[in-house]
Design a protein around this nucleic acid. Structure first.
Lengths: 245, 245
DNA sequence: CGGTTAATTGACCCACTTCAAGCGCGGTGG
DNA sequence: CCACCGCGCTTGAAGTGGGTCAATTAACCG
């Protein structure tokens, strides 16, 4: 159970960046959790069309939400890292309209919908915090739409890396100026809605600006300010502000 | 007050497509509502950076969520019609990370956050239904990401029109094969993340396929099945299924 | 050492952009 | 009543960002 608490802690950390959690609320979350599972890289955590009976919290690892179009193209619509719920929305949407795949080996914890429901019935504040988590997802979706719609691929990539840098930091998985990002260039391309070839060339262009390095899955940002300027990045949409919700 | 009930009814309708509302719950919503306002076309309903003390329901009209990039480009990230909350997320996110503008004259109803909070404390089921509304927003965002990332502009436009057709129908604002869509081609371009010129040419191409007409703000779809095929449209992501949430 | 997956490169192509001009219409003011 | 203006729509011409196809290299793995 202490192990469990340890696994859930990235989630607590994420929440506590936006509001405070009482010890009782932490316990309630802990009690709502169920199985701990390992999903190895490349496998699906949930599939499109599923009607899950529980929602899944990513305790450790990197996973991606994606949809496949009729002609087989894949669009990644979100990336999850430690402390992110990958399908909390299935609690109320019921049917998955997309899949979630592990990009690295992932440790996940399941939360039976019945227990989440109990939380909504007994813990208003905790309910709002869970709700908030899904609102953050939506805020990220909007920002991705803006980036995809209005930025060049170079700017878009800079933006994405800035976002990941902040999120990895917040998840406690970045050290000064660097983090491990286990995404292939094909994954990156699918997240940005560009071809693999172009993702490769854009990345090279970005590297040639000397703003960052990305070798063997390790991203090193040399000039955060300049990278943010290039990607027109402003972290407002991450709502990193502690206040009563 | 009967007038108020009438104004809120599109929202009830939207909710009742996904679950059932008790008379008490309807009353609770009604009691939570406050001012009714008219916002004329072109004016902002909420602005980026605002910290609203209430959330706004669009009772009648068409409005758009948008972000402006640093170089002045505008991306529309969502369209709202009768019965949609334009900023329910501000209840928990607190700060608006984007604006909402009326595209037509709009009738809006405000819901003070304090009263929404009371709902979360006393009405678990209603809370889940409000939460659900924001989850639907997120589902639409994801679908827009897929459309923008993986479809050609012709397919994307077909997809968007299919979505609007369903949503207008559901809002009771479409008659067989047609609905009034008061968007300029510039608005359309900003929603799709393409140039106005290209939006114009894409629309012409779409018209030339004879799948639809779009004249004077009236969209007439002649061949829904073919349009859906073209836009790879599947309404799963709208979650139009009545079940306990 | 063959087999597989990821990164890279070159050559050619086209979907979409930009710039610039023209047109039609409703609204307004003299 | 008409001249003028502004906005939305349309069109043409020319440029470019990013796509596609196809081949090569690099790293890993049993």
């Amino acid at each position: 159970m202490d192990n469990r608490r340890e696994l859930i802690s990235p989630f607590f950390r994420k929440v506590e960046l936006r509001d405070t959690l009482s010890p009782e609320e932490r316990d309630a979350i802990l009690r709502a959790s169920d199985d701990v599972r390992v999903v190895s890289a490349g496998h699906d955590i949930v599939r499109e069309g599923d009607r899950p009976s529980h929602s899944t919290l990513l305790a450790r690892g990197l996973s991606a939400r994606f949809s496949i179009t009729q002609d087989g193209a894949r669009q990644i619509t979100a990336l999850h890292l430690d402390g992110d719920f990958v399908d909390l929305h299935s609690f109320l949407l019921k049917t998955m309209d997309h899949g979630v795949r592990a990009l690295t080996d992932c440790v996940v914890i399941s939360f039976p919908h019945a227990r989440l429901r109990t939380i909504t019935e007994q813990q208003p504040h905790l309910t709002r915090l869970l709700w908030l988590n899904t609102l953050l997802d939506a805020a990220l979706h909007r920002e991705w739409l803006v980036a995809k719609g209005q930025l060049s691929s170079l700017e878009h990539m800079a933006h994405l890396i800035c976002e990941l840098q902040v999120r990895f930091e917040v998840a406690g998985r970045a050290d000064k100026g660097g983090f491990t990002l286990a995404m292939t260039q094909a994954d990156l391309a699918d997240a940005m809605g560009i071809s693999t070839v172009h993702a490769n060339r854009t990345l090279q262009e970005l590297r040639s600006t000397r703003l960052l390095e990305w070798e063997n899955g390790i991203v090193q940002i040399h000039d955060v300010a300049a990278l943010r300027r290039l990607g027109q990045f402003d972290d407002n949409y991450l709502h990193l502000r502690r206040e009563p919700r």
